[in-house]
């Protein structure tokens, strides 16, 4: 890595500027580039439409007397959420524990692996097929095996979440670290920068937008895996509640649980969206 500058013919034009030279085969950047309300008027219109949609559903369900087990009314779901919140609270805690635990392990390993592996092209080529295998295989499929090995506690689920998050973070971060810009490295080098300085002053900032995308997508996959593992493993967690309520045909409570899961997902999304806005907005 330190010597990559040394023997390259210095021909720099616009096309070598910091741009995604290849985005890899999984491009999730669209997620960080959603349009947001520009002013109060737009905001009111967006909220207004949402209110109308929910109200219309409520009215239609009541008017046609749709049975509860087919689709509960929004008001019923809201009531169920309020009434069952206390019972659901420990399950929320369990799901969050699995999610945060698995996420921290997976994301840390993913970023570190991406940073190291992209320095050695051959190592990257060797390792990539396995990463693709991990990205494309649903980690849920491994849960029964993990339960067999690790028991019925939270451990198998944390491992499953980490296995889902890690490769996703890694593959996106690697795309970021692969975006080199020789002119900017040459700039730092001309001031006498060492390899470490070039890494954290040039390479890391260039990679950051893609790392944030990876962290966001990883979070979404992590939540999916956590809930899925709970549905398979049973016992505690929001996923297990979904199975429980649907088996009793308590559809209002079932949808209330989904609402909680959705809120966790949206919260993660918003956090990374804001992080991206703050730290990666230069890449517009």
């Amino acid at each position: 890595m330190a010597d990559e500058l040394l023997e390259k013919i210095p021909e720099f034009r616009k096309d070598t500027d910091v741009k995604p030279q290849d985005e890899g085969f999984i491009d999730w950047t669209a997620l960080t580039h959603v349009p947001t309300a520009r002013n109060r008027r737009e905001f009111l219109i967006i909220v207004g439409v949402a209110v109308v949609v929910v109200t219309t559903i409520e009215i239609l369900i009541r008017a046609f007397q749709v049975p509860n087990y087919v689709l509960p009314a929004p008001s019923g779901i809201f009531n169920a959420l309020v009434n069952n919140f206390e019972t659901l609270l420990p399950h929320i805690g369990v799901t969050l524990q699995e999610l945060v635990g698995g996420y921290l392990i997976g994301a840390t390993i993913g970023i570190l692996l991406a940073g190291v592996v992209t320095q050695a092209p051959l190592v990257e080529k060797i390792i990539t097929p396995y990463i693709i295998l991990l990205v494309t295989t649903p980690m849920l499929a491994l849960v029964p095996l993990l339960v067999l090995r690790l028991g019925f506690g939270l451990e198998p689920r944390i491992v499953a979440v980490a296995l889902a998050v890690g490769p996703m973070v890694m593959i996106n971060s690697a795309t970021g670290f692969r975006r080199t810009d020789l002119a900017k490295i040459a700039l730092a080098r001309s001031y006498g920068a060492n390899t470490l300085q070039i890494f954290y002053k040039i390479r890391f900032p260039i990679a950051l937008p893609m790392i944030i995308v990876g962290l966001m997508v990883g979070g979404i996959f992590g939540l999916l895996t956590a809930v899925g593992a709970e549905m398979v493993g049973g016992g505690v967690g929001l996923g297990s509640r979904l199975v429980y309520y649907s088996s009793l045909a308590r559809m209002e409570a079932f949808f209330a649980t989904i609402l909680i899961i959705a809120t966790i997902g949206i919260t993660m999304y918003v956090i990374f969206f804001l992080i991206g806005k703050k730290w990666a907005s230069w890449e517009a």
């Binding site: 034009r13 616009k14 500027d17 700039l187 001309s190 900032p205 990666a280």
Partner: peptide, 12 residues
């Protein structure tokens, strides 16, 4: 001190 082709500023 070096001045490069393009301005070569760091966009972030």
């Amino acid at each position: 001190g070096m001045v490069f082709q393009e301005a070569n500023l760091l966009p972030w």
